[in-house]
Design a protein around this nucleic acid. Structure first.
Length: 920
RNA sequence: GGGUGCUUAGCUCAGCGGUAGAGCGCUGCCCUUACAAGGCAGAUGUCGUAGGUUCGACCCCUACAGCACCCACCA
C-alpha cells in the first residue's frame, strides 16, 4: 500500500543508487553486429571545482530526458560526462586560499602550487557530480573515467592531456599553430594574456582629453581617453583628405613631456569628423594604432610593464608608477605646461577582463596562436550544408557572424594550472615542438632545452572533447559509433567559446562534425525575469528546491561571506519577501518537470516557484491515481489472461484512444526538442483526462459492471497507467520507477526497471474516433449539468432528477449518474416548469427542481445576448459574397453549421424566456 | 555601426491564416473512502501602435515604438 502522498526524498535516494549499481547508465559495447544505433550526448563539462547552479540543472534535465527517452526507445545511449580543469577560474580560487594564508603562488613555486591545486581538485571535484546525481542524471559515469572516481573524464587527466599534446604538435607541424610577438589583451592582475572572447566591453563614464603637440611654427591637438599612453606615441595621424592638415603631413612635432619628436602621418583610419581629426598613434598599447604603425613601418614603443606600471621607456619622472597614477601625474604636468587643451566627460567602452574585472591592457608579448581562417571556413560550410543544425534555428546567424569575422586565437596563458605547452627552446631561441621532452631533445640534437612555461587556454582542450573523450588519437570503435554525437545541449553564451571551436577542431582531426544538432537552451532567470546574481539574492540552489530549506538557513547561506552590508540588506529583503517560509521540498521530479515545461524555444526562462509547486502537485496526483488503481486492482483479475472475457465500454476505448494521441504528441515534442509540449501533453493526459474523467467513471464501472466489464475496466486502468508511467519516465524518472514497480505486475509486464522497458509507441489502430465523439458529447452533457447545478445552488451531494430530450448514449447516461449525480429522465418534450434549460447538441437538459424565475430570466437573457453576438458575426461573414465565393467550401460549410446551431439554440432559449414571462 | 529575440489574461508563458489558450493567482460551493498538494463551477484579453496583403490577420508583409541580448577598432 502506497503512502497517502508522494514523499520524494526516500524514493529518489533509493532508486538512484540502485540504478547506478546495476550499471543502468552504461552504454552497450558497440561490438556486436546487431547492436542498436547509437545515441550520444556530450555534457558540457562543468568546472571541476564548481557547484551546480540553475543553468546546469536545467540543461542536465533536458539532456537526461533525451537520454532516457532514447534509451527506452532501444538506442545505445552514451551520455559522455567529465569535468573541466577550468584554468583561470581554478587557479584564482586556490590563489585566494593562499592569500588568506598570506602567501602568493610564487612563494610556493610552480611545482608546490600545482600540488596544492590538485589536492583542491581531488577534494572538491566530486561535488558537482554528486549534485548531478541528485537530479537523476543517468550519465555514463564510468565511461572514460581514467581517475576511477566515477565522474567521467577530467580534461587534465593523463589520457586527455596526451591527446591535447598530440593536437598541438600536429597543428604546429601543419603550420596552423604559430608563435609570434603580437598585441594581445593582457590582464595585468592575473599577469596573463586572454583571448578576445574573455574581454567584456561595457560602456562607462570616463573622460576625454585634448592635448596639444607643438611643432615648428604650428601645433596639432589630439584627443585621447588614455593620456598616459602618449609616452609611447610614435606618430600623430590625420586623414589624408583632411585639408586642415595637408600642410603639416610629413612634418614633425614634439611629444610633450619627453624629448622625442614624432612625425605627422596620413592614414585613412582617421575619421576627420571625430574630435580634432588628429589621432595619437601608440602601436604598443592600442589595437588600431598597432595596425597603423605597421602600415607606416613605425616601431612600437611599449611603456608598460606586465603589471601595468610605467617602464624604463618612459621619462624618469614616471617610471614605476601604476598606470592610473601615471595618468594623473601626466595630466598635471601637461596642464602646467599649457598643453592640456580641454577635459570633458565622455562615455566610452572600457575593456575589462571577464575573470578579474580589471581593465585589460593591449600588450605586445610573445604568444601562441591558432590560425583560424581555414578552420573557420570549414566550420561555416558544415553548418551551411546542414550537417550541424541549430535549434532554435536562428542561432545559426550568431554562429555564422562570429566565424565570418574571426581573428586568430591566442591560446597561450601565463598561468600555471593547465596543459603546459609542449614547446622547448634552445639557447638561441629555436623552437622545438614535440610530444615529450625526449622527442624534443632528439630534434634539438642534444642542445640544452628549456620548456615553454605557459599553459594552454582551457577552451583549447574543451574544443577537443568530442573526440578525445572517445579515445582519440587511438582509432577506437567508439569514435566510429559515438561520433558525431546526436545533440549538444548548451547555452548561447558559449557558442563562440566552445561550440564553434569544437566544430572546427573535430572536423579538422576526424573529418566528422562533433554533433548533428545543437540545442541552445534558454538562460534561467528568476520569476520576474531578472538575471540571477548573488548580489541580488535571487539565485536559487537547485538542491534547495529538491530538498527544501528553511528561511533561516536560506538567509544564512545567501549572505555568508558578504562584505558589503548594503548587499546583505538587499538580499535579506529579497529572500524574506520571496520565500517567507523558506522553500518546501519539491523533489527532483517536480523540479525536472518544471524545467521541461518551461523549455520552449524562447531565449530566457523565468523560473517560477509557483510553477514548481504546481508540478509537485502533479507528481502527487500521479501518485494518488496509482494508489487508487492499486487499491482497486491488486489481487483482482485485471484481464491480462486473454482466456477470460472482457468487455470494454466506450469510456475504456476512449482513454486508450487518447493515450495513442498523447504518445504521438510526446514523440513529436521530443523530435522537435519542444520539452514544454511534451510536458504539457503528459500533464493534460494524466490529470485532465485520466484522473478527472476516466478514473471517476471507472469507479462507476467497477461498482456496477458485470464481471466482464469490471475486468475490462481494471485492465484499462492498469494498462493505461502503466503506459503513462513509461511515457513520463524521461522527465520524472524517480516517481515513475517507484510506481511502475507496483503497477507492472498487474499489467502483466516483466522487467527489473522502467529504464529497461520499451518506450510507448502510438498505435494508430487504437485511435477510436467514434468513442472520442461519444465521450466528447457525454462530457458536454455532464459539464452542462454541473453548470446548471452550480448556478442553481444545488448541493453537490444531492441527487437530482434531470429531464432530458433526445436519446442519450449509455456513455452519457453513465457519466450523468456518476459524475453529475443526476438521474436522467428521457422525455420527448420538457415539462413546462420554467426551470433552466441547457442545450447540448440534440439534448435539452432541465433539472427537476424548484427555481427562482428572476434568476433564471437573467441567466437566459445573458445567454441570448451571447448567442445574438455569435449569430451577428456568423451572418456578417456569410453575407459577404467574397467569403462565400473564395473561402474553402469546408470553411463556409462549417460557418453555416455554426450559424444554424446558434440559431436553433437561441430559439430554444427564447421559448424558455417566454415561458418564464408569466412567472413572478 | 552590424545582428538577434521579445511585446497575448493580474503574473509567467504557449499558440495557429478560419470560435483566443495553459499554469499560477483570483471568486463561489464542497473535507464525495486515490489525492484539500484535492474536487466542481466561475470571472478576466480592442493579442505593443499604424498601415498593407487576404474573403478573412493574434498569425504573413512594411514601418514605428518599447524592452532585452550578442558582435564591432572610432581616438
Amino acid at each position: 500500500m502506497l503512502e497517502k502522498s508522494f514523499n520524494p526524498v526516500e524514493v529518489e535516494r533509493r532508486w538512484y543508487a540502485r540504478w547506478e549499481e546495476a550499471g543502468r547508465f552504461r552504454h552497450r559495447e558497440p561490438h556486436s553486429p546487431d547492436s542498436q544505433p547509437a545515441y550520444c550526448i556530450q555534457l558540457p563539462p562543468p568546472n571541476v571545482t564548481g557547484t551546480l547552479h540553475m543553468g546546469h540543472a536545467f540543461q542536465q534535465t533536458l539532456m537526461d530526458a533525451l537520454i532516457r527517452y532514447h534509451r527506452m526507445r532501444g538506442l545505445n545511449t552514451n551520455w559522455v560526462v567529465g569535468t573541466d580543469h577550468a584554468g583561470i577560474a581554478t587557479q584564482i580560487v586556490v590563489e585566494r586560499q593562499l592569500e588568506e594564508e598570506g602567501k602568493t603562488r610564487h612563494d610556493l613555486g610552480r611545482a608546490k602550487f600545482l600540488e596544492r591545486v590538485w589536492k583542491w581538485k581531488q577534494q572538491s571535484g566530486a561535488t558537482i557530480t554528486r549534485q548531478m546525481r541528485r537530479l537523476g542524471a543517468s550519465a555514463n559515469w564510468s565511461y572514460a573515467d581514467t581517475e576511477g572516481q566515477n565522474a567521467g573524464y577530467f580534461t587534465m587527466d593523463a589520457k586527455m592531456s596526451r591527446a591535447v599534446v598530440e593536437v598541438f604538435v600536429r597543428l604546429y607541424e601543419e603550420g596552423l599553430i604559430y608563435r609570434g610577438k603580437r598585441l594581445v589583451n593582457w590582464d595585468p592582475v592575473l599577469g596573463t594574456a586572454v583571448s578576445d572572447l574573455e574581454v567584456d566591453s561595457e560602456e562607462e563614464d570616463g573622460r576625454i582629453w585634448e592635448i596639444r603637440y607643438p611643432g615648428e611654427g604650428f601645433s596639432v591637438t589630439v584627443a585621447t581617453t588614455r593620456p598616459e599612453t602618449m609616452l609611447g606615441d610614435v606618430a600623430v595621424a590625420v586623414n589624408p583628405k583632411d585639408e586642415r592638415y595637408l600642410a603639416v603631413v610629413g612634418k614633425r612635432v614634439r611629444l610633450p613631456l619627453t624629448d622625442k619628436e614624432i612625425p605627422v602621418i596620413a592614414d585613412d583610419y582617421v575619421d576627420p569628423e571625430f574630435g580634432t581629426g588628429c589621432v595619437k598613434i601608440t602601436p604598443a598599447h592600442d589595437f588600431n594604432d598597432y595596425q597603423v604603425g605597421r602600415r607606416h613601418k613605425l616601431e612600437p614603443v611599449g611603456i608598460l610593464t606586465l603589471d601595468a606600471r610605467l617602464n624604463d621607456a618612459a621619462p624618469a619622472a614616471y617610471r614605476g608608477l601604476e598606470r592610473f597614477e601615471a595618468r594623473r601625474r601626466i595630466l598635471e604636468d601637461l596642464k602646467a605646461q599649457g598643453l592640456l587643451v580641454s577635459e570633458k566627460p565622455y562615455k566610452l567602452r572600457v575593456p575589462r577582463s571577464g575573470r578579474t574585472g580589471v581593465i585589460v591592457e593591449p600588450m605586445l608579448t610573445d604568444q601562441w596562436f591558432v590560425k583560424m581562417d581555414s578552420l573557420a571556413r570549414d566550420g561555416l560550410e558544415v553548418v551551411a550544408r546542414g550537417e550541424v543544425r541549430f535549434f532554435p534555428e536562428h542561432w545559426t546567424a550568431t554562429y555564422n557572424q562570429w566565424l565570418e569575422n574571426i581573428q586568430d586565437w591566442c591560446i597561450s596563458r601565463q598561468l600555471w594550472w593547465g596543459h603546459q605547452i609542449p614547446a622547448w627552446y634552445d639557447d638561441e631561441g629555436r623552437i622545438y615542438v614535440a610530444r615529450s621532452e625526449a622527442e624534443a631533445a632528439k630534434k634539438a640534437g642534444g642542445r640544452k632545452l628549456k620548456r615553454d612555461e605557459d599553459v594552454l587556454d582551457t577552451w583549447f582542450s574543451s574544443a577537443l572533447v568530442p573526440f578525445t573523450s572517445l579515445g582519440w588519437p587511438e582509432k577506437t570503435r567508439d569514435l566510429e559509433v559515438f561520433l558525431p554525437s546526436s545533440v549538444l545541449v548548451t547555452g548561447f553564451d558559449i557558442i563562440f567559446f566552445w561550440v564553434a571551436r569544437m566544430v572546427m577542431m573535430t572536423r579538422h582531426f576526424t573529418g566528422k562534425v562533433p554533433f548533428r544538432h545543437v540545442y541552445i537552451n534558454a538562460i534561467v532567470r528568476d520569476a520576474e525575469g531578472e538575471k540571477m546574481s548573488k548580489s541580488k539574492g535571487n539565485t536559487i540552489d537547485p538542491l534547495d528546491l529538491i530538498d527544501g530549506i528553511s528561511l533561516e538557513l536560506l538567509l544564512e547561506k545567501s549572505t555568508v561571506g558578504l562584505l558589503r552590508s548594503e548587499h546583505r540588506k538587499k538580499i535579506e529583503g529579497y529572500i524574506r519577501s520571496h520565500y517567507p517560509g523558506g522553500i518546501p521540498a519539491f523533489g527532483a521530479d517536480a523540479v525536472r518537470f518544471t524545467f521541461a515545461s518551461l523549455a520552449s524555444f524562447s531565449r530566457t526562462l523565468n523560473f517560477d516557484l509557483g510553477r514548481c509547486e504546481g508540478y509537485r502537485n502533479f507528481c502527487n496526483k500521479l501518485w494518488n491515481a496509482t494508489r487508487f488503481v492499486l487499491m482497486n486492482a491488486e489481487g483482482k483479475d485485471c484481464g491480462q489472461d486473454d482466456s477470460a472475457a472482457v468487455e470494454l465500454s466506450t469510456w475504456d476505448r476512449w482513454i486508450v484512444s487518447l493515450l495513442q494521441r498523447t504518445e504521438a504528441d510526446v514523440e513529436q515534442a521530443f523530435a522537435e526538442y519542444r520539452f514544454d509540449n511534451a510536458a504539457a501533453a503528459l500533464y493534460r493526459f494524466i490529470w485532465d483526462e485520466y484522473c478527472d474523467w476516466y478514473v471517476e467513471i471507472a469507479k462507476d464501472q467497477l461498482a456496477k459492471g458485470n464481471e466482464r466489464q469490471q475486468r475490462g475496466t481494471r485492465r484499462t486502468l492498469v494498462r493505461v497507467l502503466e503506459s503513462a508511467l513509461r511515457l513520463a519516465h524521461p522527465i520524472i524518472p524517480f516517481i515513475t520507477e517507484e510506481l511502475w514497480q507496483s503497477v507492472r505486475p498487474l499489467a502483466g509486464k516483466k522487467g527489473e526497471s522502467i529504464m529497461l522497458a520499451p518506450y510507448p509507441k502510438s498505435q494508430p489502430e487504437k485511435i477510436d474516433a467514434r468513442a472520442e465523439a461519444e465521450v466528447a458529447l457525454a462530457k458536454q452533457v455532464v459539464n452542462a449539468t454541473r453548470n446548471l447545478r452550480s448556478e442553481m445552488k444545488i448541493a453537490p451531494k444531492d441527487r437530482i432528477t434531470l429531464y432530458l430530450t433526445g436519446k442519450p448514449s449509455p456513455t452519457t447516461v453513465a457519466a450523468m449518474l456518476s459524475l453529475a449525480r443526476s438521474e436522467p429522465k428521457v422525455v420527448d418534450v420538457l415539462p413546462d416548469t420554467g426551470s433552466p434549460v441547457a442545450i447540448v447538441g440534440e439534448h435539452r437538459l432541465m433539472p427537476h427542481i424548484e427555481i427562482d424565475p428572476q434568476l433564471e430570466r437573467e441567466r437566459l437573457s445573458k445567454e441570448a445576448a451571447r448567442l445574438d453576438g455569435e449569430i451577428g458575426r456568423a451572418k456578417a461573414k456569410l453575407s459577404n459574397s467574397a467569403f462565400v465565393e473564395r473561402a474553402p467550401a469546408t470553411v463556409v460549410q462549417q460557418e453555416r453549421e455554426r450559424l444554424a446551431g446558434f440559431e436553433a439554440t437561441l430559439a430554444k432559449v427564447r421559448q424558455q424566456l417566454e415561458r418564464l414571462a408569466g412567472a413572478p
